[in-house]
Design a protein around this nucleic acid. Sequence first.
DNA 1: AAATTTTATGCAACATAGTTGCGTTTTTCT
DNA 2: AGAAAAACGCAACTATGTTGCATAAAATTT
Lengths: 138, 138
Amino acid sequence: MNITADDILKQSHLSITSSRIKILNLFLETKGALAHGDIEKKFGGKFDRVTIYRTLQTFLDKGIIHSIPTADNSVQYALCKDDCTAGHHHDQHVHFICNQCGNTVCLDDVHVPTVKLPIGFTSTQVHMIVSGICKDCK
Amino acid sequence: MNITADDILKQSHLSITSSRIKILNLFLETKGALAHGDIEKKFGGKFDRVTIYRTLQTFLDKGIIHSIPTADNSVQYALCKDDCTAGHHHDQHVHFICNQCGNTVCLDDVHVPTVKLPIGFTSTQVHMIVSGICKDCK
DNA sequence: AAATTTTATGCAACATAGTTGCGTTTTTCT
DNA sequence: AGAAAAACGCAACTATGTTGCATAAAATTT
């Protein structure tokens, strides 16, 4: 049995509202990552833009989604795996951005390698973003 | 003898203009990376915002600077090393963003490790962004 | 060195993205 | 069902990024 949007919200102690359910379902249905603009387009004014901003922020805070920085100024969001908690993210996988279709996907199986930082530097988070051509576009 | 802004522009076959010289000098003087907003603040309306956008884009195209995606929607730019050319970037080093001082620096000595992608994926560019506490803030 | 061509800049107007405050509605708790 | 808490929608605002075009400045030619 699959996990539902309802379950996720309950697990995170969040109020169950129709906008949260719908946005969360969109994430569950979508394979790749979503930008704020994608969500806005998908629902075509059904929700206020502000609601989408706040919902994404809430999901980020609770560790339901994680953000993926991109070179073109459009932050993408993707669902976290089960082992993410509000305090600490474990999304240490590589993200892939396809230059052809523009999709961003989580390569859950590709782990971000650890690098040795110069003396004095301490790392709390590592992002690895690979761009190129994805398997659907080759 | 140090390389000058003038030299860089000539090498890239770009017209020598005062805005390009000044923006390039700012990069030469600054250790870390700069965002568009930093440059705008620095010059306080001395140049048009549009000029800064276009100058950055030109420098990017010519391989004079490279861009660094960040999680907070503010693309940073930093000078490329000598071995970057217009066609192909060789800035395969790790970037570090300090959560304390907010500075972004190029860790020129830390090379981005190669990762094995799933079958069907082809990589053209890899970004590795580490955030944490830098050596000046620890 | 002046004229011409090419390129870059500034301005205006616009488009998109993100934030904040506040009254109203919805959800949750008892 | 009623009270308290949380979320939503609206409006207004700020910041960020883009485009077209007239003007200004560089580079090129003679």
